[in-house]
Amino acid sequence: MSGIGIPRRGASRDGAGEGHYRRPGSQRVPLTLFPLCGKREFTAPLGKVMASTAASPPVATVTAYELKLAWPLGAFFLLFFLAPLLLLLFISFYADTAMTHFGLTQYAKFLLDPFSLKVLGATLWLGVEVTALCLLLGFPLAYIYCRVSGWAQGVLILIVLLPLLTSVVVRTFAWIVILGRQGIINTLLLDLGLIDSPLRLLYTEGGMVVALAQVQMPLMVLPLITALTRIDPNLADASSALGAGYWRTFFKVTLPLTLPGIIAGCLLTYAAALSAFITQTLVGGGQMLFMPMYLYQQASTLNNWPFAAAISFIFLIAVLAVITIFNMLGKISQGYANA
């Protein structure tokens, strides 16, 4: 979340005598809390900082010192994230399982195979389903949170955070107990006489989407709460004083102002749902194949590392593409929100 720190620094520098770059009024800080949405915000001042270092040495030392603080994390990422990633890319270019010669065979194998593409498509779509469900259920929750009294807020935030305090394995096993043939839902429906024989809920796509949505819910609700609490309540009052109904106020005032939160929440939920290997395998079972399992199968069972590496790279690029599109939509709507 380095995005949080950088723009603020830019803002404070404005106050420290460099105000001629930006008028104080132009500090649009609120949106910058969401790193991906705020990119436009922090790249601009950073560029100016760089340009100004040569001109005014005293300020430059301060800036340099601050950048130095980022070194431990930067080095950590370089060593433990970027280096393995490059190694992975390197492996993906081997043409055969024994890794003796190079070629684009693995990529061709994946991209020309309708089955593999279907798995990729199903995985990306799964993320959309989970994200949509999270948004649908999470928004009302966040909305209520901002409108209840202090102690009720405490209870609500506890409910939202509770899943984060238990391991994802435990949460997933709870869903096995809920969805099983003798699980809570089936027992209840049987006892009420609504069904004659247990429904098949576990190991179905529907069951998995619901379980994933619950597991990833905090990632959606927390950014939404942040966005909603930052809206000035006077705006809604003003809107209704001017004659707008509840819905009109919601769609014209609240929703546009919450957009950054929605975008941040959706991105987090989407990325997490796609790669939720544990929940996907435990609640989805062995007959539904998604990218994480496909990858695991190739790497682990078949020892086909080049293909597994190629799969993970294609997956990475596909997810990045989806997120970029989403981010672009976000930027467009942000303009709408600021209009």
Binding site: I176, G180, R181, Y203, T281, L282, G284, G285, G286, M293
Partner: peptide, 15 residues
């Protein structure tokens, strides 16, 4: 159920 690993069969029996 098609379990994704043999260990999962235990859970499925239990449930």
């Amino acid at each position: 159920a098609v379990a994704s690993n043999p260990g999962q069969l235990a859970t499925l029996f239990q449930q």
